[in-house]
Amino acid sequence: MNKLLIRIRDLVHEYREYDENDVLVRTSRALDGVTLDVTEGSFVAVLGHNGSGKSTFAKHINALLMPTEGTVIFSGRDTAEIENLWELRKEAGMIFQNPDNQIISNVVEEDVAFGPENLGIPSEEIIARVAFALERVGMEAYRLSSPNKLSGGQKQRIGIAGLLAMKPRCILMDEPTAMLDPVGRREVLRTVHELNRDEHITVVMITHYLEEVTDVDRVVVMDQGKIVMDGTPREIFSRIDELSAHHMRVPQVVELAYELRKEGVPIPEGILTVDELVEALCRLR
């Protein structure tokens, strides 16, 4: 259970800009020495403001980007070696912010089947995988629907089903809920939590909604291309001043608990949920 799935050492990524004569005009360092281990089966959230390097970081895990310096090892395979690419992409799939950008077919089941078809898997096996994947994300009723008719949250779940049909070990998500309404947001989060718990799929989720990460295993905060905080949600959310310094805004319940403590109200540190705060306050009466 505690096997290491991802090992990242001193990862540096530089974006280089060239002019029309191929002369280097500018280099910007998006990742500046990131070191991180992720154990198999864990749910890790990566937080950070826009431009903190978190999306660049996620793209390194399944070799959508190659390190400028440092190494990324996913399940024993170095992402910098081209012969590993096929296996890496199969084992670690990515869900992006805009659900419309990752849907390609006119029928839901065809969309989900696209990945395994590409892998050359026999049709009976594909049919079984598609059925399983749609059932796991709660979209089996839409098997023959057109993806265009679906809501944003449903589209994201179809995207997740497409990854599931590849039998991945890890799902990477880059702000998967940023374009969704509250219901869609809940649907997608519930789905990935279930996959993490029941299928033991490792999840790395990039987000800037702190509300979404109160029930993950581990929170990593990035700023200026570096990891600046790393701990359980409870540990991270009790360091409010530090979070603010990294331009993060905590959920209202955390902020309220913090404000009350500042006023001398004796409630414990690290309150994360509405129920916890209500219980702590009621004990004071």
């Binding site: 209202q252 006023e263 509405v274 306050l281 009621c282």
Partner: peptide
Amino acid sequence: QVTYIAHALAEKGFLPYDTNVMTVEEAK
């Protein structure tokens, strides 16, 4: 979220039942 906190507190009898807050400042 603070609206839910206030309602949960009202249900436990901590806050008056008609408390209606929308911001952290008001809840505090």
